[in-house]
Design a protein around this nucleic acid. Structure first.
Lengths: 233, 233
DNA sequence: CGAGATCGGGATGCATACAAGATGCATCAA
DNA sequence: TTGATGCATCTTGTATGCATCCCGATCTCG
């Protein structure tokens, strides 16, 4: 294991566990995706395989595959012989993403409400843990950790439904929304964090048998707040 | 897939693979996808880029990209340095697909019930057209046309919600389910076709304001029938 | 006889080469 | 001045070569 390739020095060989992070394709994918999500590559930009390949010191081949994958995720749009367009975030897309989110999360919530006592308790426990972490992050003023906690909360919720297809879709939705939050999540003050925490708690508190519609309502309120926050109000 | 506008409707398929003029990548994609969906490549098979490339008389590069795309759609699973596994259809996947379908279609139905009179009437008119075609196909014993009509019916329904993300997901779900229907849709007699037509009519008839739960119920019944049919009962 | 080393075939991962489409601009004719 | 045309250049599409990796069959040794 850990053979140094014949060409020039590569990165240090780390543990070879399932963490497939050091294939060129993966690096190209992560790099480009990160650049799109954090706003380094603004929507509307036209980028080329060659650019990225040069920056990452690799050939166009892995970059090409990364682009293809990003197109499937809806972050890039490939134009034949012209280049790759960083899909701009439109209000319509914001709406579509939030609608899909509400649909998927609402389904998970409903399923959870209808689930057996034991299973629901287990999920609720995990949600409480995440919520506690998020509360700590908020208190510490750690925006990054807070955002991750937010993602975890919703992800745990969705995955409790046990449907891989919906989970995967949801992950993609979150990624897309990340781009939209750029100016809004960071721009709003600490009051926003408190609001989010409160809404998460409300959802959590409403999880229970025969309370489906209540839980769904709380979720809708939460996403509605997100909507107004993202749309810049 | 299949744009309804533009080129003529009933066309002898089976040519689109050999049709030059499309890119090699596209040909590789269609060829492989068709082979998976129609059962020529059974689930569990391990195929290689080289095989397909040789059959289609092209290099591995476009085939590689087609494989990547098919993996994103959940039809292939790529193993590093090993090959591409045609994902076998498991009961769990059937369940996941049907659950997701019900979620998306149910959402569309609910939205349609809540929509304005004019818009709903327009969609209903289109659905009636499709249903009529499907009825004709059934009467003519044209399995192929009947299946296409079925697909159209549900697709029109979903697209009426106006959410591209959900529409795209739905298309992918239909593709996956196509594989599951191989032995079931064709195996069942004409009684099944009548049943499907009746359920489509029932859904159509239940579309209206304040009838959301009724329409949803009809839809659930329809999908439940599909479930038992697909699962071999 | 069994367990580990070894070797060969097959497949992928990536780099590189080449061809062709698309675009913008300078040039030229009317 | 204006519009058409040809060219330089950028970018992708595809082919091909090589290195690497994985797996199974065989061989060797205890």
């Amino acid at each position: 294991m850990g053979k140094v390739s014949g060409r020039g020095g590569r990165e240090p060989v780390a543990v070879d566990v399932t963490r497939a992070g050091h294939s060129a394709k993966e690096r190209a994918y992560r790099h480009t995706k990160a650049a799109i999500l954090d706003g380094s590559l603004p929507g509307g930009d036209l980028i080329s395989e060659g650019q990225v390949a040069e920056v990452l010191a690799m050939s166009r081949t892995p970059v090409r595959e990364a682009f293809l994958r990003l197109e499937a995720e809806g972050l890039l749009r490939l134009f034949p012989k012209r280049g790759a367009l960083v899909v701009p975030v439109s209000p319509a897309e914001v709406e579509a993403v939030l609608e899909a989110r509400e649909l998927v999360e609402g389904h998970a919530v409903a399923k959870l409400c209808a689930a057996g006592e034991a299973e629901r308790a287990a999920v609720v426990a995990r949600l409480r843990d995440v919520l506690a972490e998020q509360r700590d992050a908020s208190a510490a003023g750690n925006e990054q950790a807070f955002a991750e906690g937010d993602r975890s909360f919703h992800t745990v919720l969705v995955e409790s439904a046990g449907n891989p297809i919906l989970s995967e879709l949801y992950a993609s939705l979150r990624d897309r929304q990340l781009r939209m939050n750029l100016g809004s999540l960071l721009g709003h003050g600490p009051g926003r964090a408190e609001e989010i925490l409160g809404q998460h708690e409300a959802i959590l508190a409403a999880l229970g048998p025969d309370r489906t519609s209540e839980a769904h309502g709380r979720l809708s309120e939460h996403l509605e707040a997100t909507r107004t926050a993202v749309l810049g109000r």
